[in-house]
């Protein structure tokens, strides 16, 4: 079912604005990531969708129905917490069965559904165990099975893999994507990990300081960022001739061409296939460039050498608001400063 958040405002206390007039449409059947740094309001938006927080103003609709004042119980949602929220005193089976037992489903139906879900999340062997006997990844799979048991209209995941080891996280991401491709439940995933958002979701809403900066497919937000913040949050950036660029979009040569900037090679770091080059620009700034091993060999780069930097056109198509100070200060650039003024 589609979810619509319309003009949502939420403050915590007097000063902290968690959400500032946020509007977002989550299309039916999509897997949308709310991506942003901590304090950007992404979890608050998710919790408001779930009914675990109440917005100060604004409307939440699920499948077109206004549910702003509805309690979590009435929304038909599945929610997965970062720290699993496993029912510690129940077995894995009873955890998964909880929502069905609350709904007073016949025992045989509950048993069949729980068996099916335990199989889906690969925990059939663990049904009789307590959550504390499971690994973190297993506990989160149990929590997902528990949320899916009630056949929710929408699935809301709050940093579901944030507490897990890197390799378990990668495995669960792929698993979640597969699950979504099979079940097509409208899913909203909160994450601060841009790689996770790019890998798993089909739509990314990039959030910063209580606002949505951009909504688009992973390619759109990466290749055509609307603001400097989106540009800087979705991947590494370098500042060349006052423009924000991706390190892998920069090319180097020994002969100057129009618009090129002169620089000195400070460091060459070989990281397998990829080579990272640190440049001291003539304006005193440092810029990072990412080349392939072949490109580096062709140029024959060594430290202390002079090169010419050829930046591509800046990818930022919009302008960030004043809350881009960090990026602006780092770039220290005339055109950007004018844009702000």
């Amino acid at each position: 079912m589609r979810i619509d958040a319309e003009a949502i405002n939420k403050r915590f206390g007097e000063d902290f604005v968690a959400l500032d007039d946020v509007t977002l449409a989550v299309p039916e059947g999509s897997l949308t990531a709310l991506l942003g740094p901590s304090g950007s309001g992404k979890s608050t938006l998710l919790r408001i969708m779930a009914g675990l927080e109440t917005p100060d103003s604004g409307v939440i609709k699920i499948a077109g129905n206004d549910v702003t004042r509805a309690r979590p119980q009435e929304r038909g949602i599945g929610f997965v917490f970062q720290h699993y929220a496993a029912f510690a005193h129940m077995t894995v089976r009873d955890n998964v069965a909880f929502g069905l037992k609350i709904r007073k489903r016949p025992k045989a139906d509950v048993r069949a559904k729980v068996d099916e879900l335990l199989d889906l999340v690969g925990l059939t062997q663990w049904g009789g165990q307590r959550p504390h006997q499971l690994s973190g990844g297993q506990r989160q799979r149990m929590a997902l099975a528990r949320a899916l048991a009630i056949e929710p209209r929408v699935l809301l995941l709050d940093e579901p893999f944030g507490a897990l080891d890197a390799n378990v996280r990668a495995e669960l991401r792929r698993w979640l994507r597969r699950l979504h491709d099979e079940q097509h439940v409208t899913t909203v995933l909160v994450t601060h990990d841009q790689e996770e958002a790019m890998e798993v979701s089909d739509t990314i809403a990039v959030m910063n300081k209580g606002r949505i900066e951009q909504v688009g497919s992973p390619q759109e937000v990466y290749d055509a960022p609307a603001t400097d913040f989106v540009m800087s949050f979705l991947g590494p950036i370098s500042t060349v001739a006052g423009k924000l660029v991706r390190p892998h979009d920069i090319s180097l040569s020994h002969t100057p061409a129009g618009g090129d900037v002169r620089a000195t090679v400070k460091r060459v770091v070989h990281l397998g296939f990829e080579v990272r080059i640190e440049l001291a620009m003539d304006d005193g700034k440092t810029a990072r460039v990412q080349l392939t091993r072949a490109q580096t060999a062709e140029l024959g780069l060594s430290e202390g050498q002079e090169v010419y930097v050829h930046p591509p056109a800046s990818k930022v198509i919009g302008r960030a608001d004043e809350h881009q100070e960090a990026v602006l200060a780092a770039s220290d650039d005339d055109t950007l400063s004018e844009a702000v003024a």
């Binding site: 779930a50 009914g51 675990l52 309690r71 979590p72 119980q73 929304r75 949602i77 599945g78 929610f79 917490f81 929220a85 496993a86 029912f87 510690a88 909880f98 929502g99 609350i102 709904r103 929590a143 528990r146 949320a147 048991a149 009630i150």
Partner: peptide, 9 residues
């Protein structure tokens, strides 16, 4: 855990 129970109905 209580919030989880609430979302489960």
């Amino acid at each position: 855990q209580e919030q989880a129970a609430a979302t489960l109905g």
